Simulated assay, not measured.
Amino acid sequence: MKRHVAVLAMLFGLMQMPAQAADWYADIAYADGGDEFNVYVEDDDGDLSTESVSLGGGFSGSLGGINYFTETFSFQYSLGYKEDSVTAGSDSVKFSRFPLDLVGSFDLGDVFQVGVGISHEFNPKLDLSDAGMGSHSFDDATGEILQIGFRFTSWKLLIRQTMMDYSYEGLDFDGDNVSIRAAFIF
């Protein structure tokens, strides 16, 4: 909790600076990591197989903005959707959530940048309805972000480490992950 407060305080302080410019931001990403739930799924032929859904992994997309405060510092904010799912036959199992990301980035030269921030994930849910085991809502979760990026004319290639833990009925699960992101600036 103390880490979250320190990161939020730093980001809030930096946001008080007047922005020189702003752009729209959109990204698509693939993440890997975190605890995995192994589930048995039945295909159309009636054969059972074991598949896994990752609490940290999956595909995501987000939309937001970037405010530029100096020539070397910017603040990116976005709201997105992230999901890892498995489908076999007509059954599917998925873990979904809505991340709100806030990242302050410092440019180190013309191309390279580093960033630190915070991610709050709303409505994390493990949906096992197709497997006959219902839907299970986890507590909202907050974690830290460390990010490096490479800037090009109108897009960025980002590598992000997110440290996230989820809670469900008193049990804690690891959602730490590493993602690769293609971010578009317009």
Rank of each mutant, 00 (worst) to 15 (best):
residue 164 M to K: 04
residue 167 S to D: 14
residue 143 G to S: 03
residue 174 D to W: 11
residue 169 E to H: 11
residue 132 G to P: 12
residue 150 F to H: 04
residue 145 I to S: 00
residue 132 G to Q: 10
residue 158 L to W: 00
residue 165 D to T: 13
residue 130 D to E: 07
residue 129 S to T: 05
residue 134 G to I: 13
residue 137 S to T: 11
residue 148 I to Q: 15
residue 147 Q to C: 01
residue 141 A to I: 05
residue 168 Y to S: 15
residue 136 H to R: 09
residue 161 Q to W: 13
residue 174 D to Y: 09
residue 132 G to H: 09
residue 151 R to G: 12
residue 131 A to Y: 03
residue 136 H to Q: 07
residue 174 D to I: 06
residue 168 Y to T: 06
residue 171 L to G: 08
residue 137 S to V: 11
residue 166 Y to V: 02
residue 137 S to R: 09
residue 138 F to H: 08
residue 139 D to N: 11
residue 171 L to V: 11
residue 147 Q to T: 14
residue 151 R to A: 11
residue 164 M to D: 06
residue 153 T to N: 04
residue 149 G to Q: 06
residue 150 F to A: 13
residue 139 D to A: 15
residue 170 G to L: 03
residue 145 I to A: 01
residue 160 R to Y: 01
residue 150 F to L: 15
residue 169 E to L: 13
residue 146 L to K: 06
residue 160 R to A: 02
residue 147 Q to R: 15
residue 155 W to D: 08
residue 168 Y to N: 03
residue 173 F to H: 15
residue 131 A to E: 15
residue 141 A to L: 10
residue 132 G to T: 08
residue 141 A to G: 12
residue 147 Q to G: 02
residue 150 F to T: 05
residue 170 G to S: 05
residue 143 G to H: 00
residue 168 Y to C: 04
residue 136 H to K: 14
residue 140 D to H: 10
residue 135 S to W: 14
residue 138 F to G: 07
residue 163 M to S: 12
residue 144 E to L: 12
residue 166 Y to Q: 07
residue 164 M to C: 04
residue 130 D to A: 02
residue 130 D to Q: 10
residue 155 W to S: 15
residue 174 D to M: 12
residue 139 D to T: 11
residue 148 I to C: 01
residue 139 D to F: 14
residue 161 Q to D: 02
residue 173 F to G: 04
residue 161 Q to I: 13
residue 165 D to N: 12
residue 167 S to N: 12
residue 130 D to S: 05
